[in-house]
């Protein structure tokens, strides 16, 4: 796997975009997932995930081959997500009035819950609840938790991605875990 990636990177450095396409295929799901869990909406997640690969392509020559490629890629993605979160202002509020309508708020635009098979409904709800709680975490805990539990990475890899000492990473994961426990304990 690593050997394939190294070979592809050499081809990309020569300017071969097909080789880059293969790299995108390999990592697209994990990068997209990381962005989605960090940002909480699919549109922004796709945008930032694409931007991640674009940056990787443009800066591929500065990639240090001693590092794991995924580490470098996840570092770009996390930084872009955090930048986006800092710039982000809420686009709209649910209780804002819809333009051109009298007294209608965004609440009325949300479709009512359609009945689903009970187990599916439950697991969907659980997913949504967990996602919502992850999004409530401060971004520094959120990135550590997402990398640890969603991307299933080791503490050492996370410390390399976030460019933080191992101890700091552990503290962030502990605090994130504790905050989530408080929110999810009665679910």
């Amino acid at each position: 796997m690593d050997a394939i990636i190294k070979k592809r990177i050499k081809q990309v450095i020569k300017g071969d975009q097909d080789a880059f396409g293969e790299i995108v295929e390999i990592y697209k799901n994990s990068v997209y997932q990381l962005c989605f869990r960090m940002l909480g909406n699919s549109h922004e997640a796709e945008d930032i995930a694409q931007e991640t690969f674009l940056r990787a392509y443009v800066n591929i020559k500065s990639f240090n081959q001693d590092l794991k490629f995924s580490t470098w890629l996840f570092r770009i993605a996390t930084n872009l997500c955090i930048d986006r979160l800092r710039k982000k202002k809420p686009d709209y509020y649910l209780d804002a009035e819809v333009a051109g309508s009298e007294g209608l708020t965004m609440y009325s635009q949300i479709p009512s819950d359609t009945p689903l098979p009970e187990t599916e409904l439950e697991s969907l709800e659980l997913q949504e609840i967990v996602q919502k709680e992850i999004l409530k975490l401060p971004e520094k805990y959120r990135s550590a938790i997402v990398l640890k539990y969603i991307e299933d990475l080791s503490l050492n890899e996370i410390s390399e991605i976030l460019e933080l000492p191992l101890g700091t990473v552990k503290t962030r994961i502990h605090r994130g875990r504790e905050a989530l426990r408080q929110q999810l304990r009665y679910v």
Binding site: Q17, F20, G21, V24, E25, K28, N29, V31, Y32, Q33, F36, S42, E46, A49, Q50, F53, L54, L126, Q127, V130, Q131, I134, I145, Y149, I150, E151, D152, R177, L180, R181, L184, R185, V187
Partner: peptide, 23 residues
Amino acid sequence: KTVAFVKSISNMQAPADFTAHVL
């Protein structure tokens, strides 16, 4: 339980035409 919950949601796929859009 919290860890199990968080792990349970990790299953997402990028949109179908993602690679084409990047390229």
